[in-house]
Amino acid sequence: MTRRNDRSHARDQQDQQDDDDAGDLLADSAQDRHFVTALARGLEVLSAFRSGDSFLANHELADRTRLPKSTVTRLTYTLTKLGYLHVVPESGKYRLGTATGALGSAMLANLDVRQVARPLMQALAAETGAVIALSARDQLSMLYLECCRSTSIVTLSLDVGSRIPLGTSAAGRALLAAVAPSERTGLMERLRALDEGNWPQVQRGIDAANAEFQRGQCAYSVGDWVREVHAVATALNPGRGLPLMALSAAGAAQYFPEARLRDEIRPKLLETVREIERRLGQRYGEDAS
């Protein structure tokens, strides 16, 4: 299997996992009397667009959201009227609208942790040659909020908005190891339900990463997500009501063997996280300890 096919297969698996998890979560939450199902369905349609998607038809949105096509047709009509989707007359397909972009841009622009972290992340990327990413959990994925890379020709194609799997990526494993045990148990149950066949292997990786994290504050993925990618990650607590995040360093396996991740990259990654948390604490006059 070629590297391109490896990456494509991994993306396809992640896309299917996101679709399945979103549908299950919507079905479960619908039992809550405070839950507004129509709103949730509209947001699921918007969430069906992923990095790299330019246009999607109603039937593609129905497949991804697991909603009836008639429901999706009404939702896309409404979202188009509100400016969250734009329809392409020639094809009848939809693309994300400017109203959606305004929401995303406002969120990212006001996410202080990105502003504080970016120069430190860029310095680490330049020093190590790795792709340095800040990510947060979105259902059963890790979503890239910021991404910095060096000028090296050999690099990964992931960027802000990219999604990586929770169970097999270093970032996802670091986050699973850092959250409360009850939350970790619930997330692992959801991961198992999505892929019973591969669950024993995924669980072994998560359990090993959790033990590693307790010893050294970092988790690793050495070809577990994509065969030719090695990565190390640790948790970052931004405070101010924001959820736990992960900071990761990743690169091509041939340039980032496991020994280098442990001996060289790990200490620098931990130092960078401590500095980000310290600066965030200073910004808000909080105790950085």
Results as ranks from 00 to 15, higher is better:
Gly172Trp: 09
Val88Leu: 10
Pro165Gln: 05
Thr2Lys: 06
Thr98Ala: 14
Thr76Gln: 05
Val45Ile: 14
Ser91Gln: 10
Val202Phe: 09
Ala40Leu: 02
Pro165Arg: 12
His230Lys: 05
Val229Leu: 09
Asp21Glu: 13
Arg173Asp: 06
Gln139Tyr: 05
Leu270Arg: 02
Gly186Arg: 14
Ser248Phe: 06
Thr76Trp: 04
Leu82Asn: 09
Arg240Val: 06
Arg283Gly: 01
Gly285Met: 07
Ala177Glu: 06
Thr155Glu: 02
Thr73Met: 04
Thr78Cys: 02
Leu108Phe: 00
Arg262Gln: 15
Gly186Trp: 02
Ala177Asp: 07
Arg173Tyr: 02
Thr185Arg: 13
Arg279Gly: 01
Gln16Tyr: 08
Gln214Glu: 11
Ile276His: 02
Leu75Gln: 13
Gly167Asn: 13
Pro165Thr: 10
Gln31Pro: 00
Lys93Gly: 03
Val116Gln: 09
Pro238Ala: 12
Val87Thr: 14
Asp195Arg: 10
Ala136Trp: 08
Gly285Glu: 06
Leu103Tyr: 10
Ala170Arg: 11
Ala123Trp: 00
Arg114Val: 15
Thr151Phe: 08
Phe213Pro: 04
Ala38Trp: 04
Ser248Gln: 11
Ala246His: 08
Ala174Cys: 12
Gly23Val: 01
Leu85Met: 08
Arg41Thr: 08
Ser51Arg: 15
Gln13Ile: 11
